[in-house]
Amino acid sequence: MGLEAKLQQDGFITTTIDSIIAWARKSSVWPMPMGISCCAIEMIAAADPKYDLARFGSEVMRFTPRQCDLMIVAGTVTYKMAQVVRRIYDQMPEPKWVIAMGACTSSGGMYRSYSVVQGIDQFLPVDVYTAGCPPRPENLINAVMTIQQKISKTRARDFQDQPFDNTIITNN
C-alpha cells in the first residue's frame, strides 16, 4: 500500500523521526559534480534525457559545495588537484557522502605515473567506488542508489555530535 493510500484511509502514520529524516535525506541527494576529466562527460550523460538521474532525486547538480551533500569525484585526481578536491570537500556541510567514479579515482586506474594520486581514498573518505573507465551512466545511477541505501540506514543523531568542520588543509 502506497503512502498516499494509507494517508487517505487513516489520515496519519506512525514512524520514527530517524526514518522520516533518513527518507527525506535519501530522496533528495544533491550531488556536487566534481568533474575533472573524461568521467565528467559520462556524468553529464547520466543527467541527460536518456538516463535521467532526476528519477532518483539527484538532478540538482550544484556547483557550489555549500549546497551539496554528495560529492561525485569524476576524473583523474592529480596531486595538484588533490588539494583543491579536499578543500571543496571540507566546505561541504555535514552529513556528506562521496562517490569515487571511475577507475582513476578508485585506484589511479591506467595512470601509474608520477603526477596521479593512486586512489582518492588516500585523502578522502569514500563511500561508494564505481568501477569502469568510464563507468556507464547506469553504473553511476547504481552508485547513487547505493548511496541512498546507505543513507536510509542512518539515524538523525549519527551526525549531531560532529562540530562544524572548518579545518584548513595542512600539507603534510
Partner: peptide, 11 residues
C-alpha cells in the same frame, strides 16, 4: 594549467 597533468609523455 596542470591540474590534470597525467604524465602521458612519460608513460
Amino acid at each position: 594549467l596542470g591540474y590534470l597533468h597525467r604524465g602521458y609523455e612519460k608513460m
